[in-house]
Simulated scan of single mutants.
Amino acid sequence: MPSEFNRIHYEEVTSTNDVCKEEHKKSSIITVITADKQTRGRGRNNKAWASPKGNISFSFGYTCSGLIDGLSVKAGLTVAKTISKSLGRPVKLKWPNDLIFQSKKIGGILVEAENVKEKFILVIGIGINFSIVPEETHWGDLDIDDYKLKEKFISELIKNLLKDIVDDPSPDWHREWNEFCVHLNQEVELENNETYIFKGVNNLGRMIGEKSSQTYVISESSLKVKGLY
């Protein structure tokens, strides 16, 4: 039987992840928070994420017995597939958790966890630019300004997160992630300025890099990729 969930929508919040975490503590079922606008949205490494009205600010919270390796990478695949299928935009993925459309970043994933009574509340935060103002065009967007389409997408995204993350996770999800990767078999530069050929991800969401005929597994970094934003 599919998991139950409770969705709460706000016109404005500080952070959907923060609200999702607190609301989920009051409930035993999956919590989904959406908002028209965030005033203190954030991305990885606590970087600010602009969340003006018109885009999607979305958080999906649930309780789990332990932390899940590669959850943000896996969730990114679900988001990219949902956008591509329900909105007709061929979105790609940049490791570890960026959503790419027409060579620009249009969104990202932020997973946060809190240990509560020997279990973990896991919150998957998703921000997507549907339509941005001209002064923000160094980022990309999906060029969609249609409320019904957004609601259709949100409904599909919830359904797919329930299936892919909670109810029926596939052990081979990483193979499909590699098909969506925008920089597969390309040279990438890590935060420490070392370069590798990106060969994909493993089933824990970790990067597989190749250098001087040697293979390396890299668990955490950000990438620079020539030609992307």
Rank of each mutant, 00 (worst) to 15 (best):
S65A: 13
S84L: 04
F101D: 07
Q102G: 14
F58Q: 00
T39Q: 09
G76S: 14
P90E: 15
V116Q: 03
S27M: 07
G66D: 12
V73T: 15
K25I: 10
L93G: 06
P52N: 05
E118R: 13
V111G: 00
D36Q: 12
S65T: 13
G66L: 08
G41D: 02
N115M: 10
F120P: 06
W95C: 09
K53Y: 10
G70L: 05
V32D: 01
Q38T: 10
S65H: 12
L77F: 09
T82H: 07
S51W: 00
N115P: 01
V73E: 07
G43E: 01
K47P: 00
C64Y: 11
C64F: 13
R89L: 08
K85F: 13
G54M: 01
E112M: 06
G70P: 09
K94E: 08
L87V: 05
I29E: 15
V123T: 15
N97I: 07
T82D: 07
I121R: 04
R40Q: 08
I83P: 02
G108F: 01
I56P: 01
N45K: 13
S27C: 09
Y62L: 14
S72I: 02
G66R: 14
K47N: 12
S72M: 01
Q38P: 02
K92H: 07
L110Y: 07
K37M: 12
G41T: 06
S84Y: 03
K119Y: 07
K92N: 13
G43D: 05
F120Q: 06
N115R: 15
T34K: 01
S86C: 10
V116I: 15
E118K: 14
S57M: 13
G76Y: 03
S59W: 04
K26Q: 15
N46R: 14
N46M: 09
G41I: 02
A50K: 11
P52K: 05
A80F: 12
R44A: 10
S84V: 05
G41L: 02
F120V: 08
K37C: 13
L99Q: 12
L71Y: 07
K81G: 03
H24F: 09
G41M: 04
V79Y: 03
K119D: 09
R44H: 12
Y62N: 10
G107K: 00
S72P: 05
E118N: 15
V73H: 09
S65C: 03
G88W: 06
S51H: 00
L77Y: 11
H24S: 04
W95E: 10
I100G: 05
F58K: 02
Y62I: 09
K25H: 06
I109P: 01
G70I: 03
N55R: 03
V32F: 02
P52W: 02
S65Q: 14
K105V: 15
L77I: 08
A48D: 11
N45H: 12
I68T: 13
L67T: 11
L93N: 10
T82I: 09
D69A: 15
V111A: 08
Q102W: 04
G54T: 07
L110G: 05
E114A: 08
V91C: 14
V123F: 06
S103Y: 12
Y62Q: 06
I68N: 02
S57C: 08
S28D: 11
F58V: 01
R89Y: 15
D69C: 13
L93D: 00
I33E: 03
R42D: 05
G41C: 03
L99P: 01
F120L: 11
G54C: 12
L93V: 08
G54K: 00
P96L: 07
